[in-house]
């Protein structure tokens, strides 16, 4: 008689993914870097309590505070209106990261929906993929610029300049960047649909909606995760390009891109006002891209465990 030795609880699939992810040195370094950046923008304001939009009321004093070089009181100097750059960097970073994340969520939501519908329902496939191709052939940057210019004031009038611009940018970026995700998801769904477990589910009479939610969606999670990570990077870049061209956020609600744009005028006298925001954008995007790369390797079962 053998005592049933309780098997050591098998490590879940995520443990294997994490183990593989940890072996990607670039991705681990990127994760740490991104953690530091996130700490800077989210925890930083708790320690550095200067209002990023504080402008000295006294004009004479305000003039003295403009364009200061880095000092102990203002470690990154001040901008053309005497606002503290360190506080503005933290504030701008929060908005940049928020824009990137929310725009990615919008894009992934549209992309996954279109991809699943196109892959699962054959009747919709042709039309949805034609729509995707159409979007891929649109000149996105010019269209984004036009959308920002035409709708910004109208939406700002309804929702206020901050929330209005935020929603507009997030929606505009989301609506113009879902196509890659849709294509990848459709491909996965087309293959999954033919698998036995889907056939089994269908043969016991599971409705389509439940098959999609319970069986298809969990299985397309990995490509969606990778696309989502890379999507954050792309969205941050797009937002900063819009801000750089002067069609992004208002100056009292700055992102890193907007801060860089504001610094361009004084690039000769105080170049650090261009360098810091640019460096922050570049490092964030670089680390997010590296994490996406590491995730792709970690989630690919053909590579995992090698």
């Amino acid at each position: 008689m053998t005592d049933a030795v309780a098997p050591k609880r098998a490590a879940g699939p995520w443990a294997a993914v994490w183990a593989q992810f940890r072996r990607h040195r670039g991705a681990m370094a990127a994760l740490i870097l991104l953690g530091l950046l996130a700490a800077f923008v989210f925890i930083g304001p708790l320690l550095w309590r200067i209002d990023p939009n504080f402008i000295e009321k006294n004009t004479a004093k305000m003039f003295k505070m403009r364009n200061l070089a880095p000092s102990l009181a203002h470690p990154l100097g001040t901008d053309q209106l005497g606002r503290d750059m360190l506080a503005r960097m933290m504030f701008g970073g929060r908005i940049s990261l928020a824009v990137g994340t929310v725009a990615m969520l919008v894009a992934i939501f549209i992309g996954t929906t279109v991809g699943v519908l196109a892959g699962y329902f054959r009747r919709l496939d042709n039309w949805l993929m034609r729509l995707t191709d159409l979007f891929l052939a649109l000149p996105l940057l010019p269209l984004l610029l036009v959308m920002m210019f035409l709708f910004r004031d109208a939406i700002a009038g309804v929702l206020g300049p901050r929330l209005g611009t935020f929603l507009l940018i997030v929606l505009a970026i989301g609506v113009t960047s879902w196509m890659q995700a849709a294509r990848v998801v459709r491909g996965e769904v087309l293959a999954l649909k033919e698998r036995e477990f889907v056939l089994a589910a269908r043969s016991i009479g599971t409705p389509d909606r439940r098959i999609i939610l319970r069986h298809i969606l969990p299985n397309v999670l990995s490509p969606v995760l990778v696309a989502a990570t890379l999507g954050i990077a792309a969205a941050i870049i797009t937002e900063s390009v819009l801000s750089f061209l002067g069609l992004g956020f208002p100056p009292d609600f700055p992102t890193w891109g907007r801060l860089l744009y504001d610094g361009i005028g004084d690039i000769r006298t105080s170049p650090e006002r261009v360098v810091w925001p640019g460096l922050a954008i570049s490092l964030t995007v670089l680390s997010v891209n590296y994490i996406g790369d590491g995730l792709r390797d970690a989630l690919d079962p053909r590579i995992r465990g090698r």
Binding site: F244, G278, L279, S282
Partner: peptide, 10 residues
């Protein structure tokens, strides 16, 4: 990777 990630305006 740097070429992808660093925006051209920077």
């Amino acid at each position: 990777m740097v070429g992808f990630s660093v925006p051209t305006f920077f």
